[in-house]
Write a protein that binds this DNA or RNA. Structure first.
Lengths: 234, 234
DNA sequence: CAAACTCAAAAGTACTACTTATTCAAGATG
DNA sequence: CATCTTGAATAAGTAGTACTTTTGAGTTTG
């Protein structure tokens, strides 16, 4: 508990650049700053070290590393960045990642999904279409996330599957900012149905192409969002 | 030092399935097993916990989590898997990841690379072609890695850039297994030149397409490697 | 038989003592 | 005067002990 508090506090400061790279923290100083014991301070530093956010050198202290050294795939770091002032930029980065992965994931899902998964994907597509027609945005988002989540795990690649949280975050972030069109775009819905159909048919090329169309569309949306929404912070 | 030894030992055991999911380890037991102090044992467990390899519950112990919960992007976990019996499968997974990312990275590189980067990419392409003609496989690999590394960092997406180690590993693994053709394929070399040219011209579509051709080719190679090389273990 | 209560086991936290590596500087040596 | 060596100070690393908190499991009681 104590551990997590301190980790979040210190990690967020580093992730948001409040502690610039090169900054040296002495472990004793950390204990005072957070009113934590040596044990807690040390374990927090160990964790930050494994995330490559810091490096420790004897007789020197804990050194904040360059962002390029960080493990940007660590869920904690992603969280800290999304909750900080750089949220729009972080969302853009994550969206680019997803736009790269998902078409490929769709391809593998078409090749490897179980019959049951293919069925569920189709069902989710149908529900997606229905909630879109009903202009029920929040339910739409829910099914949208479920759709992408299922697709990623059906790809049978653990590294793809792990990105479902990222995708959920990107999709939510888009809706949350109120910058999404008042109702889901019919083309996007049609493309989701196309992906589901292609996966059901076991047609990797078609699945990949349809998914690519989806993410390209999303990429353009988010790019616009960052362009004029970058200053709003939270 | 001590810390890292124990972490590697225990982490590798978990990563390779020697300690099945659900296994419960008591921290005192760990101290004995590795002859480590309480401090070291605790910090190791903390780190494994942040990697989502384990979860700790009071009055129970340290529980090994399901592979699906692991943070598969952690460089340490990747290392443990590559060094273990599941190396071929791990290489296949990583190669799929790279095959998803690199075409997209090429696109962004074409849009965002600095003039200097565009120049260096072209130069690397040339050197690649030369070493290919000279049948100098090890130098070829070196330039190949440098080429992909530069492209990824030129994409200006930290999450893409971070995968350069993964790409290097995949490329090396392919050559290392001696399953690569005795000389680099002319088509592959031509495609690298095409990527460099497209990036130089700032043509994202062309860059993406050429890179996609490269990774698709690699994907097929590795799939074959896994099919008949899966049993050779280390 | 179910619900609450008690007890003990194991992780979490705190603190102290000791070890080791590294930087910085003073002094010796060429 | 420069360079190399040596040594002391410092801060992180490691070890070990003591105490706290949570919670699973067994037991008692209505």
């Amino acid at each position: 508990m104590r551990h997590e508090q301190v980790l979040d506090a210190l990690g967020a400061q580093i992730a948001n650049g409040a502690l610039a790279p090169g900054t040296v923290l002495r472990s004793e100083e950390l204990q005072e700053r957070f009113g934590a014991s040596r044990t807690v301070a040390r374990e927090v530093v160990r964790v930050l070290e494994t995330m490559q956010l810091t490096s420790s050198k004897r007789r020197v202290g804990v050194i904040v590393r360059e962002p390029s050294a960080w493990n940007h795939y660590d869920p904690r770091l992603i969280r800290w960045q999304l909750d900080g002032p750089a949220r729009p930029a972080a969302l853009a980065t994550l969206n680019e990642l997803r736009s790269a992965i998902e078409p490929c994931a769709a391809r593998f899902a078409a090749l490897r999904a179980t019959p049951e998964e293919r069925g569920r994907l189709g069902a989710l597509g149908e529900r997606l279409a229905r909630t879109a027609r009903a202009r029920d945005l929040s339910t739409f988002l829910e099914f949208d996330i479920a759709f992408h989540d299922l697709l990623l795990s059906a790809s049978r690649n653990p590294m793809f599957a792990q990105l479902s949280e990222v995708v959920a975050e990107v999709l939510t972030g888009r809706t949350g900012h109120g910058l999404m069109p008042p109702e889901p775009q019919p083309e996007a819905v049609a493309l989701h149905l196309e992906v589901a159909a292609a996966v059901a048919d076991g047609d990797p090329d078609r699945a990949e192409r349809a998914m690519r169309d989806i993410v390209v569309q999303a990429r353009e949306e988010i790019a616009a969002l960052v362009a004029d929404g970058g200053a709003e912070g939270e």
